[in-house]
């Protein structure tokens, strides 16, 4: 019990710094508006039509894209293609073993973030499968899955209007912290995630939790969009020259 109490005290102390100070260095040395260095690579799995691997700090994600293949017989006829998204976690991805192995919520969110970007009418009657596997969960999992999935779709040669990149922020008191780690996410007051198509300047998905004022939402969304554009440049670089190591 005493151990739990001291851990809680430490956490409160850190939380206070994040909420009150204007720029307290975070646990991994970043300042509030710095993203983690991103490492992205195409083609980790050979059997898939396209695949991508992303590593942001401790978060490691692999996405494979299969298809387009014939839709299942049970499906109704559709003159637009279907996108089938699935997000799963390895049993060792989280601190406690085997939590959330199959994540329905994230699967639905991934689908919603991508469907606006993929030209579904280019592959009628067929289905494209997007399978994401989180090898290690280290915070901001969903935004990284979304960015990695759009890289994998591009690698598979699926027609898209634009690449989708996604970034989330955490809110602590009056401060906004970009690209939170899982420790930071565990104590956050609120969070906001944006999935964005930088060249088309369109938001495909936006979610928000916690209590926010208007001005703060505007700030946070702008911060996310800016980071999304930068991330998109990295993705583009990566697709143009797969052999170079792209990291920020």
């Amino acid at each position: 019990m005493s151990h739990a109490r001291s851990a809680r005290g430490e956490r409160e102390e850190l939380r206070r710094h994040l909420a009150v100070d204007s720029d307290w260095p975070r646990a991994d040395g970043r300042s509030f508006h710095d993203c983690r260095p991103a490492f992205m690579q195409t083609g980790p799995t050979t059997a898939a039509s396209g695949s991508a691997y992303a590593e942001f700090g401790k978060t490691k994600v692999i996405v494979s894209v299969f298809g387009p293949r014939e839709s299942k017989k049970a499906m109704m006829y559709s003159d637009t293609g279907r996108l089938n998204c699935n997000v799963s976690y390895t049993t060792f991805a989280t601190a406690i073993r085997g939590q959330g192995v199959d994540n329905k919520e994230y699967s639905a969110m991934l689908h919603k973030a991508l469907e606006g970007a993929v030209m579904l009418h280019t592959f009628p009657k067929t289905t494209v499968d997007v399978f994401a596997l989180v090898l290690e969960s280290g915070g901001s999992d969903l935004p990284i899955i979304i960015s990695c999935a759009s890289l994998a779709l591009a690698d598979a040669g699926i027609m898209m209007y634009d690449l989708v990149t996604s970034v989330s922020v955490s809110c602590f008191g009056k401060n906004i912290i970009i690209d939170p780690t899982s420790d930071e996410e565990a104590w956050q007051d609120g969070s906001l995630m944006v999935a964005y198509m930088p060249s088309r300047k369109e938001i495909t998905q936006l979610t928000l939790t916690g209590e926010w004022s208007d001005g703060k939402i505007t700030n946070a969304v702008e911060l996310c969009m800016d980071a999304c554009s930068k991330l998109c440049d990295i993705l583009r670089e990566r697709l143009k020259d797969p052999s170079s190591l792209a990291s920020e």
Partner: peptide
């Protein structure tokens, strides 16, 4: 909520939205 604070937000539907449209929608919703 009663104090005019935004407590949550979700987007549905496939089409992307211009950021300015979203901000306008938020103020109308408020």
């Amino acid at each position: 909520n009663r104090h005019g604070k935004i407590c949550g937000l979700t987007k549905r539907g496939g089409a992307g939205l211009d950021p300015s449209v979203i901000f306008d929608m938020i103020s109308v919703a408020k």
